[in-house]
Design a protein around this nucleic acid. Structure first.
Length: 346
DNA sequence: AAATCCCGCCAGGCA
DNA sequence: TGCCTGGCGGGATTT
């Protein structure tokens, strides 16, 4: 089947290697870790309240194509942070739901034996399910919670080999694909501080350590400095959205066309230019946060959640202090508003 | 050179 | 038929 119309809309114009080599192309703007952190900033609540997540809404708010959202929700769903409600819609469950999900995973136990096709009602479905990111993510988590490795690191290689199908143990190509997927999963899980990236003591090879909910030092700090080295490396000076990407220009334009872009980040192109060079409000200013719609104070929700949850990790001390300053000012202002308007602000 | 992982093609399912 | 979902791997970027 050829690409669908939806996919065509979804997809920025076909990229050439020229574009990819463009000097302004920067992965920092687009990492899955950062995207996931921003996703949490939008939907995670301290009070444990559930929220509906529309995939299109999430994609346009974050300035990415839907495809990227699928990666995130599939992994987050595997640890119970959200669940699929219906087509296009997920329900945010929050960190309160994680212990149960982990308990269930633990009780299920780690069984990597492929289900024989003959035993399945629908072999095709099972094959697909077997390879799905969601299941891979669950099994990855099980490697820690079911094998007593909660205090130990598991190397990337080790994880990939364990999660490979029996017949694929020596297939380099399959192994490489599996490793790619583990990177995807690990980036999401480290963004929510359930795991952290480390290195094996002996070989220095990449590895991951289970943090569990202890990884969240407190209810606010989802982007703890304890977060993966990866996030540290890739998040400096980046925008809240991934709209900076040239490849995201189609999405960005679509959002602008809808007249929904809150141009609170005065770096002009809504993040299309390097925000690190021309920041005005700081990288936590969302580019694609929709204007308040009728009866819905979207802005308030977003800024509140940003103020409460979003903590960029700056390697630069000045940036750290600057953000702290803005955050304190915001919190102070917010509490003053709350005092004046207890009903509206509650 | 190895590690990392973004990106989007495209297959398959479903209404 | 068109949209939704997501597996997959090429290849660019970072370490």
């Amino acid at each position: 089947m050829s690409s669908s119309a939806a996919a065509a809309v979804d997809r920025p114009p076909a990229t050439t290697t020229t574009t990819r080599r463009d000097a302004s192309y920067s992965r920092k703007q687009k990492s899955l870790s950062l995207l996931c952190s921003n996703f949490l900033s939008l939907y995670n609540r301290d009070d444990g309240a559930t929220a509906l997540i529309g995939l299109d809404d999430a994609a346009s708010r974050l300035g990415v194509v839907r495809r990227r959202i699928y990666d995130i929700v599939n992994v987050l769903e595997s640890v119970g942070l959200l669940s699929r409600k219906s087509k296009n819609t997920y329900t945010w469950k929050g960190f309160g739901a994680v212990p149960n999900a982990l308990k269930e995973l633990r009780e299920e136990g780690l069984d990597l034996t492929p289900i024989p096709a003959a035993c399945n009602n629908n072999p095709l479905d099972e094959t697909k399910r077997e390879k799905s990111l969601a299941l891979l993510a669950q099994n990855f988590v099980k490697l820690f919670v079911c094998t007593g490795s909660e205090s130990e690191s598991i190397s990337l290689d080790e994880a990939a080999k364990l999660l490979l199908g029996v017949g694929d143990a020596h297939n380099v190509s399959v192994m490489r694909t599996k490793v790619r997927r583990i990177y995807d999963i690990a980036n999401v899980l480290s963004s929510v501080n359930l795991i952290e990236k480390t290195h094996t003591a002996d070989t220095g090879k990449p590895a991951y350590r289970w943090l569990g909910l202890n990884g969240r030092r407190d209810g606010l700090n989802l982007n703890s400095e304890l977060n993966s080295e990866q996030a540290k490396k890739r998040s400096f000076g980046t925008d809240l959205t991934n709209a900076s990407s040239k490849r995201s220009k189609v999405v960005e334009k679509r959002v602008q066309d809808q007249g929904e872009v809150e141009n609170c980040n005065s770096d002009g192109g809504g993040g299309a230019k390097e925000s690190s060079k021309s920041y005005q409000f700081g990288p936590f200013a969302p580019v694609a946060v929709p204007r308040a719609r009728k009866g819905v104070d979207v802005n308030k929700v977003c800024w509140e959640s940003l103020g409460a949850y979003y903590r960029p990790q700056y390697q630069n001390q000045a940036m750290k202090e600057l953000f702290s300053h803005y955050r304190e000012a915001w919190m102070l202002w917010n509490s003053q508003v709350a005092e004046k308007n207890p009903i509206q602000s509650s």
